[in-house]
Write a protein that binds this DNA or RNA. Structure first.
Length: 590
RNA sequence: GGGGCUGUAGCUCAGUUUGGUUAGAGUGCCGGUCUGUCACACCGGAGGCCGCGGGUUCGAGUCCCGUCAGCCCCGCCA
């Protein structure tokens, strides 16, 4: 139907007759001479129609074209006149002189424009999602989805090259008590019973290890029925990896090798080995388990110096066993009161009661904290004239997130240049448990993380101090992946589940199949899952996952194009043995 | 579940602070002129449930209450 893509027409084809097919991107009608930009996935090319080379009938057809009409053009590749060349465009040196034009399909005037003038705003996201086929025709989204394809292809090739098998796991699975809410799927055959869509293939990949598959990978769709964010969709895609007889180092090596091959596909850089940092160190130095290491600015514990000042608030904090932690900003004294107040606002927004500060001037220190400085305070803190000291006092669970937020705000306010553009890091040794109050424990990650053997003696006495063989891959402050070595011992797995508050019966009902499998001779194993949507969004420079997903959901978890979810007919529910409680919307449709 | 922002022509937005005659602009669309345009240019025209419902008022795009939708955030979620 066509001889090549519109964007592939090139200068060395001058004189050739070509046939292209695509959409009318734009038409410029000069009267006797008409120019068309013809677009397909490969790009744009200008077609010109004029009486010297285009028959009268074709001329009329060109005159009648509107945007997004689908056409086929046969013509001769010609160089443009000298003064009409556009070297900045891929096909700007040439044009196709129209001999023949066929209208393949008429388009109604697009509700939202595909063509966009320079600096013209995008239509609202609501309309972009409702008219997604038009939005997807834009070069940016075409390129984002093409990037996703290249990432997926390279990923499969990489793991294939390392002996991994791509194995599919079920979409209809067993509801899990832990973690996120499940999407439930009613079983018609077993009325009153439900499948769940997988939150991840976690248990299946462990079962595959136990079954002896050694090295598994899958680009897997995952589902979590939780509220959305710009970086969270109810269905998302993971590069899911698991291997047997491995240690964390093996996983790091594979992931670093993978990322080093993926990054160049998007013009990013990843140079292994990546930085390593324990969770404790990340929280201590950056207040976050996913620190943005493009900036080296870090947090210091200044309890000793600041707690000794005649400042009741700080003395009290230290007396309670709390700490005073600071960020010291070189040149930060140039910030205005208003700008510093914005930093304080960042701290408050993250849950801190406030933020203390001191401006270091030539001969003195000012501000609510600077007023209390002693003669030697400045020297003991290593502060220089022009610096700004920001301090937060309190328990770490308050000061860490607050200083993390302040750090980001300060970097932005002072326009501190990053020391690198691509900061990759492993954050390791996450706590196995988190405190959910009243002495109850929850799994910090999931209940299958292998506790560090060195911490095993703390399991009963100080479970919150137990670190796991768990690790996150962090890129520029975004968590792109998360994994761990798993528990392969049935007794330990049972013990951990019990610590999480599950009764013996519940453990058997919910996890009996796993424990049973572990008892059949499970190899030591571990793995990781990398977020494809996040990787693609980061690499494509997209601010939202929606820009790297063909048909994403809105923040209210709706699909605007096709209109899902939707009510269903009563008879369909009846067949599933389901009746709805209370009112329901009228628009039931089968 | 909670907080914030937004909703006016097909699209992008003014107008809402301080209620007042006929709600504007750009672009797109329709018609016309135009042989080197590429945001073509020029002339003319059509196009509005001011998200929806209620209230206050002589009078509501504008004020109040409710509601729906989109986006951002907290909770939630790795």
């Amino acid at each position: 139907m066509r001889s090549l893509g519109a964007g592939r027409v090139a200068l060395d084809m001058v004189g050739e007759t070509v046939t292209i097919a695509g959409w009318v991107h734009r038409r410029r009608d000069l009267g006797g001479l008409i120019f068309l930009d013809v677009r397909d996935r490969s790009g744009l090319v200008q077609a010109s129609a004029g009486p010297g080379w285009t028959a009268a009938g074709a001329m009329d057809a060109v005159r009648a074209l509107g945007p997004e009409d689908v056409i086929r053009v046969r013509g001769i590749v010609q160089p443009r006149p000298e003064e009409a060349r556009r070297p900045e465009m891929a096909t700007g040196e040439i044009e196709i002189q129209v001999i023949e034009l066929e209208l393949l399909n008429r388009a109604r005037t697009p509700t939202i424009p595909v063509y966009r003038a320079p600096e013209e705003e995008l239509p609202s996201e609501k309309l972009r999602l409702r008219h997604r086929v038009l939005d997807l025709r834009r070069a940016e989204l075409q390129e984002s989805l093409a990037l996703r394809h290249r990432l997926a292809l390279e990923t499969r090739n990489f793991f294939h090259g390392h002996g991994f098998l791509d194995i599919e796991t079920p979409i209809l699975t067993k509801p899990t008590p832990e973690g996120a809410r499940d999407f439930l799927v009613p079983s018609r055959v077993h009325s009153g019973e439900f499948f769940a869509l997988p939150q991840s293939p976690q248990l299946y990949k462990q079962l595959l290890m136990i079954a002896g598959f050694d090295r598994y990978m899958q680009i897997a769709r995952c589902f979590r029925d939780e509220d959305l964010r710009a970086d969270r969709q109810p269905e998302f895609t993971q590069i899911d990896v698991e291997a047997s007889f491995v240690e964390p180092e093996d996983i790091y090596r594979w992931c670093e090798g993978l990322v080093a091959r993926l990054a160049p596909l998007a013009g990013a850089v990843a140079e292994p080995p990546f930085a390593r940092m324990s969770w404790d160190e990340a929280m201590e130095r950056y207040g976050s388990d996913r620190p943005d290491l493009r900036w080296t600015l870090d947090i210091h514990d200044r309890s000793e110096v600041l707690g000794a000042l005649d400042f009741r608030l700080l003395r009290g904090a230290v007396a309670r066993g709390e700490r005073i932690r600071t960020l010291q900003l070189e040149g930060g004294a140039r910030l205005s009161r208003r700008e510093i107040a914005a930093l304080e606002g960042a701290a408050r927004g993250a849950g801190a009661p406030g933020l203390l500060w001191a401006k270091i001037l030539e001969d003195r220190a000012t501000g609510p904290l600077g007023r209390f400085f002693r003669d030697d305070t400045r020297a003991r803190l290593g502060l220089a004239s022009g610096d700004l000291l920001l301090a937060a006092a309190g328990p770490d669970r308050i000061t860490s997130p607050a200083l993390d937020a302040v750090r980001a705000a300060a970097i932005s306010a002072l326009a501190i240049p990053p020391s690198t553009r691509h900061a990759w890091a492993w954050v390791t040794r996450f706590p196995v448990f988190e405190d959910v109050g009243d002495g109850a424990l929850a799994a910090n990650h999931h209940p299958f993380v292998q506790p560090d053997p060195a911490d095993m003696h703390l399991l009963d006495s100080a479970p919150l101090s137990v670190r796991g063989l768990a690790y996150d891959l962090v890129y520029n402050g975004t968590e792109l992946g998360s994994g761990s070595i798993r528990i392969h011992d049935a007794a330990l797995q049972r013990r951990i589940l019990a610590m999480l508050g599950l009764g013996a019966d519940e453990i058997e009902t919910k996890f009996g199949f796993l424990l049973d499998a572990l008892g059949t001779g499970a190899p030591p194993h571990g793995g990781i899952a990398l977020g494809v949507d996040r990787i693609a969004a980061r690499f494509a420079g997209a601010s939202s996952l929606r820009d790297v997903i063909a048909f994403p959901k809105t923040t209210a978890a709706r699909a605007l194009f096709e209109g899902a979810p939707t009510a269903v007919a009563d008879e369909d529910l009846a067949a599933l043995g389901i009746s709805l409680r209370g009112r329901r919307d009228g628009g039931a449709s089968g």
